[in-house]
Design a protein around this nucleic acid. Sequence first.
DNA 1: CGGCATCCGGGAAGATACTG
DNA 2: CAGTATCTTCCCGGATGCCG
Lengths: 231, 231
Amino acid sequence: MKLEKITSEGKRRYDDACAAAHALDLLGERWALLVVRELFFGPKRFSDIKAGLPGISANVLTQRLEGLESSGIVRKTRLPPPASVSVYALTDWGRESEPIFQALGRWAVRSPMHDRTLSFSANSLMLSFRTMFDPARAGDFAATVAFRIGEETFKAEIADGAIAIRRDSDAEADLVLTGPAAVIGAFVHGGVPPEALPALTIAGDPAVARRFATLFPLPSKVAPPEAGGPA
Amino acid sequence: MKLEKITSEGKRRYDDACAAAHALDLLGERWALLVVRELFFGPKRFSDIKAGLPGISANVLTQRLEGLESSGIVRKTRLPPPASVSVYALTDWGRESEPIFQALGRWAVRSPMHDRTLSFSANSLMLSFRTMFDPARAGDFAATVAFRIGEETFKAEIADGAIAIRRDSDAEADLVLTGPAAVIGAFVHGGVPPEALPALTIAGDPAVARRFATLFPLPSKVAPPEAGGPA
DNA sequence: CGGCATCCGGGAAGATACTG
DNA sequence: CAGTATCTTCCCGGATGCCG
């Protein structure tokens, strides 16, 4: 005879009043946080979310969106005709989860096993700029930088030691960087010279590009764990 | 014929260069972050970790500790004789993950479904003090507060608009709060008057206790998601 | 095509019992 | 006390198919 699991009402949760544990109840399932990541710069359709998440399957994405909506993190909206499509957007509170990403990102770039050569969604790249922007390095530098990553376009405005990033198809900018997100990341974060990146197109003042690439310093990696053991 | 899944080498990872995704590769498995939480105030033994994690089973805890150790987040040490026991400690880098907790906690206390009446480990409570401490409210208030939660003892030192918390069995303090973590939390965070908390013992100046309980303001909750839909 | 339901295989999580 | 062994249950991921 099988024990009837009366204790649980279906969901697997941590029975813990710790707020961090509750956050994991809401965002801790596989893919949930990355789904949120894909929505940080505005609403997206199902397929566009899926495109930014290599490896997720449609049914899991459906489940996550349902869960996030019932938690009040995501809202599903149907755009008015003629564009009668469903889009998913973060609620105000959902958008407030960005510091979680920044903390995760700042910590994990120091990981010895972090592989920066994998695929990189446009949202990830833009988020990394917001996370790693160093006001001290920017000083009084001011510029508008546009990004063209496949079909997606963004614009970053740097002024007064702050950076503002939004989706924007307007090409008016001091600098336009075109290419795959991973390649732009290699240039900006990795310090790879543009000459070594044939997939990268830089339109605008090269000096501005070089300066831009210094504004997002990455913290140093930690030493890998010693398998053999020290002294 | 079944497709041979060559792509995966056993572990289920996100194929994503995004550092946040990598953080989830390291800490995203169920219980992993909460295991780290239990180690923030110093090394612990297997059973003591398990005691702070209601619901985890021994085999899962074993797996998590193995994984965290191979990632360089946790280190297993055997104390020298006569206390020949194994303990688990965070590495320096593992300790740097605390901002992740703080971001998770600050965000999730605003959740409409956060239930503050569940069980609460001593580590969670201490971590919540570090997370929610408000220097502005502290002003030039200075005090040493000791906590006795079952077998565990901590001491918080508040001075110069900062708070320092550590494990400490020394009872020299301006204020000693004794009781279960959830009860101390109800007093400090929940604003429940001590008269309503028979399980709470306050030793020291009651005025200091009242003042202490004002130093950790919680952000307001968000409205629950409207099931029926608004206008 | 976009979104969601269904079925299946594999693997991780959970409960319990057992061992050094 | 500190885990291991075993078994069950459930989640994840892939494929397929329905329906607007």
